[in-house]
């Protein structure tokens, strides 16, 4: 698949990410290649310590110690610093909605500041629209995070990510901290937003069920490497080649049945 030049959203070649230096150096991602086409929904699956979240952080610029190449929307990224245009293209939703909202800022302030940073002028109207688009009414606008439930917080976090009107969303286990019934609401919301706005998703999860529901293409990571990439249709039929993928599929089905 070589669409990186025309309509590829994310193209990663030979990515290595490490933490620490010298003897304490710990390589979290060991040379991976990944291509996500525009409009695709791509899942990155693995267990804790597999390096799946680290990949997202390297793309977003939150981890600076990496080499290889990352291209997003045709723009080749540097280790340090991202352009204004990058932040308008790529946004991220974090795992824990209890940790991703500033405890002293109201929803209004969170969204208002984001919009202001991106240079929008019609902030009031946009906040209202953003809250509507994530299924929160205006009644939530002036609440503090502690006055919101986990699902509502995650909706605010999604609204914040949508504020600059990005084309790519990096989703770092967006529902793993939530109850299943709330997870269903958030996943539905994410599906709706994707079809409405034509977004590209790169979603990290440990839950094969969630990835199977949300994504078209899935890569399985183990200890910093992609061991297998397969379409969701194959995954549903349990047609995996790599033993680790098989093991993952079996244990997640074991837990479901």
């Amino acid at each position: 698949m070589n669409m990186a030049n025309d309509n590829g959203a994310i193209d990663i070649r030979n990515l290595r990410v490490w933490f620490g230096e010298g003897a304490a150096r710990n390589v979290a991602v060991k040379g991976m290649n990944l291509a996500v086409g525009a409009g695709e929904s791509f899942g990155l699956v693995g267990e804790s310590g597999s390096g799946k979240s680290t990949v997202l952080r390297a793309i977003a610029g939150l981890v600076e110690s990496w080499d290889g190449s990352i291209t997003v929307g045709g723009e080749s990224l540097r280790q340090k610093g991202r352009s204004k245009a990058f932040y308008k293209t790529v946004q991220m939703v974090f795992q824990d909605p209890y940790a991703s909202l500033h405890p002293r800022h109201t929803v209004d302030r969170v969204l208002g500041e984001t919009l202001q940073l991106h240079g929008f002028s019609d902030i009031d109207a946009r906040i209202t629209r953003l809250l509507d688009s994530v299924g929160l009414g205006g009644g939530f606008r002036f609440r503090y995070p502690h006055q919101l439930s986990g699902g509502q917080r995650q909706r605010v976090a999604i609204a914040r990510a949508l504020a600059p009107e990005p084309r790519i969303l990096l989703l770092d286990e967006p529902t793993s901290a939530l109850d299943v019934s709330v997870q269903a609401e958030i996943l539905n919301l994410l599906s709706d937003l994707r079809s409405e706005m034509g977004l590209t998703y790169l979603m990290v999860s440990h839950d094969l069920g969630v990835v199977g529901h949300m994504c078209g293409q899935v890569a399985v990571m183990q200890q910093g490497e992609i061991v297998e990439e397969l379409g969701v249709a194959e995954m549903r039929k349990l047609q995996a080649n790599h033993p680790y993928t098989k093991h993952l599929l079996e244990s997640s089905l074991g837990a479901i049945r």
């Binding site: 977003a60 610029g61 939150l62 991202r82 204004k84 932040y87 790529v90 946004q91 991220m92 974090f94 795992q95 824990d96 940790a99 991703s100 909202l101 500033h102 405890p103 500041e113 984001t114 940073l117 991106h118 976090a157 914040r160 504020a163 600059p164």
Partner: peptide, 12 residues
């Protein structure tokens, strides 16, 4: 914390 990461991702 993630809320600082989040605002960094807005270019602050």
């Amino acid at each position: 914390s993630d809320y600082i990461h989040a605002i960094r991702l807005q270019g602050a």
